[in-house]
Simulated assay, not measured.
Amino acid sequence: MTDLATPQQLADRTASAVEAAVAAGRELGLTVTDARVLHDVFSVVVHLAPSPVVARVPTVLPESTDLVSLARRQRDELAVTRWLADRGTPVVPPSPLVPAEPVQRDGFSMTFWEFLEEDRDAEPDYARNAELTAELHAALREYPGELAFLSAAEPHYVEIGLDRLEGRTDLIAPSLLDRARREWEVLGPLVRSRAAFEEAFPGVELRPVHGDCPPANIFQGVDGHRFADFELITLGPAEWDLASLGAELGAAYDRGAERNGLRPLDPRVQRFVDAVGMLRVVATLTLVPQLPVLADYLKPALEQWPAMPFAGGLDD
């Protein structure tokens, strides 16, 4: 591949994001003298020290995502996390030191969050986190804000991604791309239309869900766990938040669901969201030029895909 970002380009992108976050923070009245990068994958996450504020600056985005659509998504995230925090749900909340609005600067759109000390000795416990996801779903049930149906599936992104992968045999085999296109013909209409989904899965409740694998997005602070990264908050079935996590974590979620008065996962819906999730993985291959390490991250999922039922078995 000749279009992969070089190490220098990656470093320059990170530096630009940090500079934008520092400048924006200072304009908002924060004291920033010792900015420190906490994470740098899809977003550059910066502690604006000594202020107890963290800026999250998305840097690896599909070409179809512009600043307007990104800011709209960020406003949903800020609104839902503020609402949850006000009701005592353990989340990483927006910073109270600045307005809870996305800030655009130097081509970036960023949000600001309360700095929390991480428990660096804690080991990830994904079974526990899957159980906790049911607690989050119970808390979200009463959320009054309007959310788009399955926006986290990003159907426009999937469709553009499949088009962009045409001829990219360095990223995906033609046979797998063909399968992706044929699966999307089955799955796409159910992702785009709430009515079509409800006809295919009668009686399956739609509710606000985290949207981006909450068992993998629980921050372990020194004061306990916090739900984090609601960037893809959406209206959808509970199964969406357990997509592609397997039977063991699905069973863990069901234990939490029973404890919180929620329904267990529906196997048929689970196969549907697993299949849609896999097509999002395929579309994410288009981001490899921006973030070359993604190729290694996505490889295991792509290797497992041929063994999965075609389109979640919905073509039967």
Results as ranks from 00 to 15, higher is better:
L190I: 04
D223S: 15
D274L: 10
L206Q: 12
A247W: 03
F227R: 14
I172R: 14
G246I: 07
P215M: 02
W240F: 03
L162V: 07
G250F: 05
G188V: 00
P237C: 07
T234H: 08
N260M: 14
T234F: 00
R268E: 10
D274S: 12
P264Q: 10
F230V: 10
S193F: 00
F201I: 07
L242P: 03
G211R: 06
L162M: 02
F272H: 11
G277Y: 03
F197H: 12
G167D: 02
N217L: 02
R207L: 12
L265R: 11
E248H: 08
S175P: 08
L279K: 08
A228T: 06
P214H: 02
D254P: 05
A238V: 11
A252V: 09
R255P: 07
G203E: 10
P215G: 06
P174I: 02
E239H: 11
V269K: 04
R268Y: 01
L165D: 00
V276K: 07
F197E: 04
A252Q: 07
A228C: 13
H210S: 03
Y253F: 13
H210I: 06
L265H: 01
A228D: 03
G224K: 05
V191Q: 02
R226H: 09
R194T: 14
F272E: 06
A251R: 15
G261C: 07
R226E: 06
D163H: 09
R268Q: 15
D274R: 12
P174Y: 12
G161F: 02
A173W: 12
I233L: 10
A243L: 14
A216L: 15
L190R: 03
A173Q: 08
V276Y: 00
S175K: 14
L190W: 01
R181H: 13
L279D: 01
F219T: 14
E248C: 14
D223P: 01
Y253N: 06
D178G: 15
G221T: 09
W240Y: 05
Y253K: 09
R192H: 03
F272Y: 01
W240T: 06
L245H: 09
E258A: 13
S193K: 00
F219Y: 11
D254V: 09
D229H: 04
A228G: 09
E258K: 13
V269W: 02
I172P: 01
I218E: 07
Q220D: 06
I233D: 06
E166N: 13
D229G: 06
P214K: 05
E159Y: 02
T234C: 09
R182C: 04
G167N: 01
L162N: 10
A196S: 09
D212I: 04
V204N: 04
G246N: 11
G277D: 09
I160W: 12
R268W: 01
F219R: 13
G236P: 02
D212G: 05
G203C: 11
N260R: 08
R179A: 14
F227H: 07
G261P: 01
I218L: 08
P189T: 15
F197Q: 05
P237G: 12
E205V: 15
I172V: 15
R255M: 12
A252D: 00
E199P: 05
T169Y: 11
A247I: 14
L265K: 06
G161K: 05
P208A: 15
E185Q: 15
E159I: 05
F197C: 12
E258L: 09
V186Y: 00
